[in-house]
Simulated scan of single mutants.
Amino acid sequence: MESLAVVLLAVFSAGYLVLAGADVGVGMLLPWLGRDERERRLVIASFAPFFLGNEVWLVAAAGLAAGAFPGLEHELLTELYPLFVVLLVGWVVRDMGLWLRGRVDAAAWRVVWDGAVVAGSWALALAWGSVLGSVLGGGGLNAGSVLGLPLALVFAWHGAGFARWRLPVGLAGRAARVGGVPSRYGVSAVVLAVAPVVAGVRLPWSESAADGAGLTMTAVVTVVVLPLLVAAQALVWWTFRGRVESPSYL
Results as ranks from 00 to 15, higher is better:
V93H: 14
A195W: 05
R94K: 15
E55R: 05
D23T: 01
G144K: 13
G133M: 11
A68L: 03
R110Y: 07
M217L: 12
P227V: 00
A68N: 13
G138F: 06
A213W: 06
G214F: 06
W157Q: 11
V24N: 09
L17V: 05
A60S: 00
D114K: 12
M28H: 00
Y16T: 03
W109S: 09
V117L: 00
P168Q: 07
A152R: 10
R110C: 11
W99Q: 15
Y81G: 00
W157R: 10
G161I: 11
M217G: 02
T218I: 00
F47L: 05
V112F: 12
Y81H: 12
D105Q: 13
A232G: 10
W238Y: 13
R94D: 14
F69G: 06
V111K: 13
L87K: 07
V59Y: 07
V201K: 05
H74N: 14
A219C: 01
V56C: 01
L88T: 15
A10V: 04
S121T: 09
S246E: 15
L52D: 13
W165E: 15
L19I: 07
A232K: 08
A209C: 08
V85C: 05
W238G: 06
E79H: 11
L87H: 03
V224Q: 00
E39C: 01
S130V: 07
A176Y: 03
V190Y: 06
M217A: 15
G15I: 04
V224F: 01
A14N: 04
G138W: 10
R94E: 13
V43G: 11
G97Y: 13
A65N: 12
V230M: 06
V85K: 10
A127D: 13
V187L: 14
P168W: 02
L100K: 08
G180D: 07
V146K: 08
G159F: 09
L235H: 13
L147T: 12
A123G: 13
Y16V: 04
P82R: 14
G67Q: 08
G133D: 04
L229Y: 05
H158E: 14
A62T: 14
A199W: 03
L226V: 04
R41D: 14
V223I: 11
G179D: 04
R103T: 15
V11D: 12
T216H: 02
S3D: 12
G159H: 12
A232L: 08
F162H: 08
A160T: 08
L132S: 10
S13H: 03
A61T: 10
N142W: 09
S130W: 09
L228D: 01
G97R: 14
L132W: 14
V86C: 15
L58N: 06
I44N: 01
E207F: 02
A106N: 15
E79S: 14
A189V: 05
G53K: 07
V112Y: 08
A108L: 05
V131H: 02
L235R: 12
F240I: 12
G67F: 00
A116Q: 07
